[in-house]
Design a binder for these strands. Structure first.
Length: 566
RNA sequence: GCGCCUGUAGCUCAGCAGGAUAGAGCAACUGCCUUCUAAGCAGUGGGUCAGGAGUUCGAAUCUCUUCAGGCGCGCCA
């Protein structure tokens, strides 16, 4: 797809202009020949400092043994601005070169948005690379918690950003339906089953079992349909039945909750498949063949320390059962080798960060480039209610689950709030704020901007006034500061998507859309769209229609609705 | 003890491949609705960028160190 990034166009023109000026100066012997790796162009914080600024003169100063301002002057006097968007160039401060662009450049964005519509903002830095985002992967032995909720919002938005950046993205959920924890799950269910029918003391609850009420609930329901006929059934056999029953219920619930949350996975990958296809054993064999394992005390160990880890790790316990780690290596081997992903992004909770180094080490051991695996660690979530930390749901008296949260705040607020903070920082989720219908609530603030625009469009449309094509309006009428600021923000979207994709930070997009909404509200109060001046009205109408498209694009990328009325 | 993350306005956080006077929202105070949604806008006050040292023309940003908080270091996942 053809994409338009005005920011990139401007940067390229400026870089070329600087380069040519430098070459010319060297030819005239007014500057020595020097090498600069990359010309850094930044957007100055202060508007008086122009649209772009560069510090090349300061960087060259040492090499050239000349004062930075003098270098800057020489460069500027050798610049040829004809045929570019550059209007004027100034030297300022310690030696910055500030570039001021023509308004024409800015007005191009109107055409770009009209041209690309709901695809405006897309870029192609991914070149169709196959990338997997594996996220949530909640333990199917119980309900989803706030960590899963944050991971879901983050992972899904990151996946969307990568799609917008030109990657071929697969969203995947890893279902841990095998191994030790399923054993524990089965023993816990069995204990509750017998206890419910014959009393608390009739069966000892396993030391390391799952104590949650949901386990008892499962068995209570099971009994109401199946009765007590499993009391006399062989332990192993009935545990199998209980596990299948409860696990399916949990997985169905997880799928339903995530669907409600607006997340559609491409693949639900079962850990058990890795065992069924013998991939866990194959992986262990491969590591052994390469000499990266050894036996000690009846267990098989992986030499993780040879790959930078602090200590070696058990792959197969002395009872012959592979560890979670062994299965996880097999899983990642499957992602990279069997399925051929170019990049894999895993989103894990903070309590798994110790796992990162050894996982990357294992990647190296099986011949995969560890740099192609990115692990995003998300920090914990604190729920706040009435200014206090809320651990339990008031309604159920149990820990707050994803569905409790969605009941309380709705999908829009949850997804927006979880993406307001960088993944690395702890997040306080203010439940009261999330449901507040006022300017304090960032979700409403952005959605309100969208609804306001739709309202104006609707009103004028009823009077027979429609949005015109970019070619039939006079864009140069958009010269109020509020209008210019809005246009500048619209220009930034492709670059914002690019940076968000490169840094894997969806929170950038929530900040962007908040900024854009704020600029719109300012514009709204300063400039009227509906006026007697027909030409001006047409131009402003076009402008707000562009803002509407961009707000809508970003909100949808975040998985948040863009209401037309509020 | 070792490793990772965090520390910026009263609160919640941006800024951190070094750049010009450190920003936003909330809270506080002052204004703006006979005109397209006041779920909005404009303005005021508010800082030892945790402390210290170093590198640099220039450090919130990079290095070292101290302090404070969180997490991890299982034949758990």
């Amino acid at each position: 797809m053809e994409t338009i990034n005005l920011m990139e166009i401007a940067r390229e023109q400026i870089r070329r202009t600087i380069k040519k000026a430098a070459e010319k100066a060297v030819q005239q012997d007014s500057l020595p020949e020097l090498h600069i790796d990359e010309i850094v162009l930044e957007i100055p914080r202060e508007k008086q400092h122009g649209d772009f600024a560069t510090n090349v003169a300061m960087q060259m100063a040492r090499q050239a043994k000349m004062p930075p301002r003098k270098i800057a002057d020489i460069l500027v006097s050798n610049m040829a601005l004809e045929g570019t968007y550059i209007e004027k160039v100034e030297v300022a401060g310690p030696g910055f070169i500030n570039f001021y662009l023509k308004k024409e450049w800015l007005y191009q964005v109107i055409h770009a948005i009209e041209w690309m519509g709901n695809d405006y903002g897309r870029v192609n830095i991914g070149n169709g690379q196959k990338v997997m985002v594996e996220f949530v992967s909640a333990n199917p032995t119980g309900p989803m918690h706030m960590g899963n909720a944050r991971g879901g919002a983050l992972g899904d938005c990151l996946a969307s950003i990568l799609e917008w950046a030109g990657y071929d993205v697969t969203r995947e959920f890893y279902i841990n339906d095998a191994g030790n924890q399923i054993e524990k799950f089965g023993r816990s269910l069995e204990a509750r089953y017998v206890q419910l029918l014959k009393g608390e003391d009739a069966f000892p609850f396993p030391e390391d079992g799952y104590h949650g009420e949901d386990i008892t609930d499962h068995m209570r329901e099971f009994i109401s349909s199946e009765g007590d006929k499993y009391l006399d059934v062989d332990s192993e056999e009935r545990r199998k039945v209980f596990v299948e029953y409860a696990l399916n219920k949990n997985i169905e619930k997880i799928k339903a909750d995530l669907k409600r949350y607006g997340i559609e996975y491409d693949v639900w990958f079962h850990e058990s498949w890795l065992y069924e296809n013998n991939e866990v054993q194959q992986t262990i064999d491969e590591l052994t063949q390469k000499g990266y394992t050894y036996e000690k005390e009846g267990a098989i160990w992986f030499k993780a320390t040879e790959f930078g880890a602090e200590k070696d790790e058990v792959l197969v316990r002395n009872n012959g059962v592979p560890t979670y780690f062994a299965a996880d290596i097999a899983y990642h081997r499957n992602k990279f080798i069997t399925r051929g992903f170019d990049r894999v992004i895993d989103i894990w909770g903070a309590d798994h960060h110790g796992h990162v180094t050894r996982m990357k080490g294992a990647m190296k051991a099986i011949g995969c480039d560890p740099d192609k695996l990115d692990v995003i660690i998300i920090q914990l979530v604190r729920l706040l209610k009435n200014g206090e930390v809320a651990r339990m749901s008031k309604r159920t008296g149990r820990t707050v689950t994803l569905s409790d949260l969605l009941d309380e705040t709705g999908v829009d607020a949850a997804r927006f709030f979880f993406n307001m903070r960088q993944s690395g920082s702890h997040l306080d989720f203010d439940l009261d704020l999330a449901v507040k219908q006022s300017n304090e609530n960032p979700v409403f603030y952005v959605q309100y901007a969208h609804a306001r625009i739709c309202s104006i469009l609707r009103l004028l449309s009823e009077e027979g006034i429609q949005v015109k094509g970019a070619d039939s309006i006079d864009v140069s009428l958009l010269n109020q500061p509020e209008e210019v600021e809005l246009l500048k923000k619209l220009v930034e979207l492709p670059e914002e998507i690019t940076i968000a994709a490169l840094t894997m930070e969806p929170s950038r997009m929530t900040r962007y859309v908040l900024d854009l909404a704020a600029l719109f509200h300012t514009f709204y109060n300063a400039c009227r769209v509906k006026t007697e001046d027909v030409e001006l009205m047409a131009a402003r109408l076009k402008l707000i229609d562009c803002v509407r498209i961009v707000l809508s694009n970003v909100l949808h990328l975040l998985g948040v609705s863009a209401p037309e009325r509020m």
